[in-house]
Design a protein around this nucleic acid. Sequence first.
DNA 1: CTTTTACCCTATCGATTTTATAGAGTTAAC
DNA 2: GTTAACTCTATAAAATCGATAGGGTAAAAG
Lengths: 137, 137
Amino acid sequence: MLSKKTKYGLKALTYLALQSKREPVQISEIARHENIPQKFLESILLTLRKTGLLGSKKGKGGGYYLIKEPNEIPMTTVIRVLEGPIAMVPCVSLNFYEKCDDCPDENKCAVHKLMLQVRDSALEVYRKNTLADLISE
Amino acid sequence: MLSKKTKYGLKALTYLALQSKREPVQISEIARHENIPQKFLESILLTLRKTGLLGSKKGKGGGYYLIKEPNEIPMTTVIRVLEGPIAMVPCVSLNFYEKCDDCPDENKCAVHKLMLQVRDSALEVYRKNTLADLISE
DNA sequence: CTTTTACCCTATCGATTTTATAGAGTTAAC
DNA sequence: GTTAACTCTATAAAATCGATAGGGTAAAAG
């Protein structure tokens, strides 16, 4: 199941991407328009800023804005930042690999074999979709 | 993340599929060979039996066995029984559809648009893999 | 230089889900 | 009728998730 964090984060990103100008948008405005609890959104935008996807400006007239163009933001990045590993089991993860304690041989493991395929297919989708693709009508 | 329930269930199914004869295998044997907590496995096998994937025999010489041939058991079925909906958000689920409260228009929702593709690609993988595919060397 | 605005950061809380265990009940074989 | 093995319910520990609280910090306005 997709976490609300990811869902809200994605919505916020699209809201920012749809702005005609790249000027700071307040958290409260995004929260209102996208029906997101403001405090929760605050923490999400903070992590998006820390990972370099968003910039922020403090004080009056401040807010968040996209640093890159929407077509330069692939979903692989967004999902990994917000949701974590794309793989459903650590033993097939590219960026967060971890061996299973219970599994003596990965190459004979049915779970491994299946989840490898699932990871690849998901990765393909996330790679070919940028933020720009998701806001295009 | 894939739940342990699904992981264990899949492993148990492959263990049963690899048996030369379709005779009852005891829970304890499966648990031992696959490094699964026995009591936990017990409940998993029970749900697999209730959904018609496994048969069971009580008393001495009892145990669990596959009802169908491995090539007749698609992963779509297994995953839905053990893990639940394949879709990552209810609004793109085929079997468990549910509207989002926060989303005024699904067709304009970026999350919806992305997760629809993810669902389709996962579905394709699960459909083309049967239990037989996962145990073939 | 003080007030206001708005982001920054940490802590915490309640609910839910997940994982696992306990133990009594039931059925079948011998 | 004793033993083996599945059945079923209850429960508890642990982890995760969603959300909130509240004070801190920086920038702009006047």
